[in-house]
Computed example of a mutant assay.
Amino acid sequence: MIVIRSFDVNKPGSEVDEIRGGVAGGSIIRGVLRVNQKIEVRPGIVMKDENGNIKCTPIYSRIVSLYAEQNELQFAVPGGLIGVGTTMDPTLTRADRLVGQKVVTNHRTFALQINFFLLRRLLGVRTKGTEKAGKVSKLTKGEILMLNIGSMSTGARVLAVKNDLAKLQLTAPVCTSKGEKVALSRHVEKYWRLIGWGQIQAGTTLEVPPCPL
């Protein structure tokens, strides 16, 4: 499931025994979610160690409720938006902090190799009269792009380009899989403009600590 919303449903001043776990909302891509099912949110908590290396710690939890609109469910399948009540600490879900995360069993990827396609001209750029929008130049080694993968937006540095293949170093880990689509944007005139799209061919997977449960 791709998380597109997350929030704390507890009201200020709630008693300790009244506090409920955090809630995540999103769309199920594949599989089935059931009440009382154990889940894993990835990439989870991202931080750097003393050597500056990126570390990810998945968030392990349990589903306590499922909602579609005002309807309470016992299980949920792909299609529409689903609200998932969990046992997570509400501080992890408040103010959309889990947006871009996934409830899955996929890998945590930190570097990507993609097969990309660039647009011929920029979209959303104002032109004068019959003037055509600017052409989209080729990707260059070292430039910074913005990638949209599912509901996650992250920066990426181009490490290498060969024909229609590019190797990218992400600024933050994402949870994705081979074959997933990505959108590519470039900083043009103070704004991020869509310049193309791509498909993930390979990636470098980060190791994570095993489930403590």
Results as ranks from 00 to 15, higher is better:
Leu98Ile: 01
Lys138Val: 12
Thr127Arg: 09
Met1Arg: 04
Lys38Asn: 12
Lys38Gly: 03
His107Tyr: 09
Gly129Arg: 04
Gly134Cys: 04
Glu180Arg: 11
Val182Arg: 05
Gly100Leu: 03
Thr127Ser: 13
Leu159Phe: 03
Met88Leu: 11
Asn51Lys: 06
Gly44Val: 04
Arg121Gly: 05
Val104Met: 14
Ile45Pro: 05
Gln169Trp: 05
Leu98His: 08
Lys132Tyr: 04
Gly52Asp: 11
Lys11Ala: 15
Gln74Trp: 00
Leu213Phe: 12
Thr86Arg: 04
Ile2Phe: 07
Leu213Trp: 13
Gln201Leu: 14
Ser177Thr: 12
Arg30Cys: 01
Arg186Lys: 15
Pro173Glu: 05
Lys128Gly: 00
Leu123Arg: 15
Gly80Asp: 09
Arg94Leu: 08
Pro58Lys: 05
Gly134Val: 11
Lys55Ser: 10
Ser137Phe: 13
Trp192Tyr: 13
Thr127His: 04
Val77Ser: 10
Arg5Asp: 04
Glu207Val: 00
Gly25Lys: 10
Val182Asp: 05
Ala24Arg: 00
Ile144Ala: 03
Leu112Cys: 05
Lys181Pro: 00
Ala166Thr: 10
Ile29Met: 05
Gly80Phe: 02
Val16Asn: 06
Leu33Ser: 08
Ala111Val: 08
Ser137Met: 09
Lys162Leu: 14
Cys211Asp: 15
Val161Pro: 00
Ile19Ser: 03
Asn36Gly: 02
Ser185Leu: 10
Trp192Glu: 06
Ser14Gly: 00
Ala202Val: 00
Val9Ser: 09
Arg62Asp: 06
Ser185Cys: 03
Gln70Lys: 14
Val64Ile: 13
Gly150Val: 06
Leu123Cys: 14
Glu131Arg: 13
Ile82Val: 10
Val125Lys: 08
Glu15Ala: 14
Ala133Lys: 13
Met47His: 13
Gly150Glu: 05
Glu69Met: 09
Gln113Glu: 14
Ala68Thr: 10
Val158Lys: 09
Arg120Glu: 15
Val125Ser: 04
Phe117Lys: 08
Gly142Trp: 10
Val64Leu: 07
Leu119Glu: 15
Gln113Asn: 11
Glu40Asn: 09
Leu119Gly: 12
Gly31Ala: 09
Gly79Lys: 08
Gly26Pro: 07
Lys38Asp: 15
Gly142Thr: 13
Gly134Tyr: 05
Leu33Ile: 12
Thr205His: 11
Trp197Lys: 06
Val64Phe: 06
Val174Asp: 05
Gly80Ala: 07
Ile144Pro: 00
Val174Cys: 10
Ala24Phe: 04
Asp17Gln: 01
Ile45His: 04
Lys38Met: 01
Leu73Cys: 13
Ser14Asn: 02
Val161Asn: 09
Pro78Ser: 09
Gln199Lys: 12
Ser61Gln: 07
Lys48Gly: 07
Leu165Asp: 11
Phe7Glu: 02
Leu118Pro: 11
Thr130Phe: 13
Thr86Ile: 02
Thr204Asp: 01
Asp17Trp: 06
Val32Cys: 08
Thr140Lys: 15
Gly100Pro: 00
Val158Gln: 07
Lys135Ser: 05
Lys167Ser: 04
Leu112Pro: 02
Gly100Met: 04
Asp89Trp: 01
Lys167Ile: 14
Tyr67Ser: 10
Leu206Arg: 03
Trp192Met: 01
